[in-house]
């Protein structure tokens, strides 16, 4: 079959964003922002014991913030999705009142970049479990770097060893909470048929490792 009328309009490249990509990515991100916000509120309650014992352990909780980056990319599969989703999610958190002030935007941008670089390293062709885990870890790693070394980072005053421990914990948390959960969610979503207009519609039947 040939698309007679389709040929008469400029054909969009497979890498460019359609309106549906933008809106769904934004909603994942904004919903992520709400979850973030709840997560930040919860952060104080849940991380208080961790904080009291050994503050770098709070890094283990950080993965929740990075879900939009990985989930957005696994669903949309267009260059920039991780960066866009995470930045929008941070904007959403800012709108709701963030304990990190406007610096939450920079954290969001960097976390998104961490995940984006991993997907870019696989030329946006691989979206399997190991890549999702790596992307989560990438986001977590950048989150840890930002928190430990940026002037606005909350852990800027930690001793070097504690910083290293914190970064390790955020990377682990990113891999598991943001990476694995997003990957599982994407497969579940693909089975429901809601991803039928996205490149990820076949995610449920893709091989796990290759």
């Amino acid at each position: 079959m040939t698309g007679i009328s389709a040929k008469q309009t400029p054909t969009t490249s497979k890498k460019s964003w359609r309106v549906v990509d933008i809106v769904v990515a934004a909603l994942i991100a904004v919903a992520g922002g709400v979850i973030f916000w709840a997560w930040s509120q919860g952060a104080n309650v849940i991380t208080a014991p961790l904080n009291a014992v050994y503050p770098p352990l709070t890094g283990l909780y950080a993965g929740g913030w990075m879900i939009p980056a990985v989930l957005g990319m696994l669903i949309i599969r267009k260059p920039g999705a991780a960066l866009f989703c995470e930045t929008v999610a941070a904007t959403g958190e800012l709108l709701m009142g963030s304990q990190y002030g406007t610096t939450v935007l920079i954290s969001g941008l960097l976390q998104g970049l961490g995940a984006e670089l991993v997907f870019a390293a696989f030329v946006y062709k691989k979206f399997n479990l190991p890549v999702a885990l790596l992307a989560g870890a990438g986001a977590g790693f950048f989150c840890g770097l930002n928190d430990s070394f940026a002037p606005w980072g909350w852990n800027i005053a930690y001793a070097a060893g504690d910083k290293a421990a914190y970064i390790l914990f955020t990377a682990i948390s990113g891999a598991i909470i943001a990476g694995a959960l997003s990957w599982i969610a994407t497969r579940g979503l693909a089975k429901t048929g809601v991803l039928s207009s996205f490149a990820s519609r076949k995610a449920a039947t893709e091989p796990v490792f290759s």
Partner: peptide, 14 residues
Amino acid sequence: HRFVLGTLAAMRLV
């Protein structure tokens, strides 16, 4: 503007 307005519209759904 596509990204800005797409995000604004999505925010309304929150």
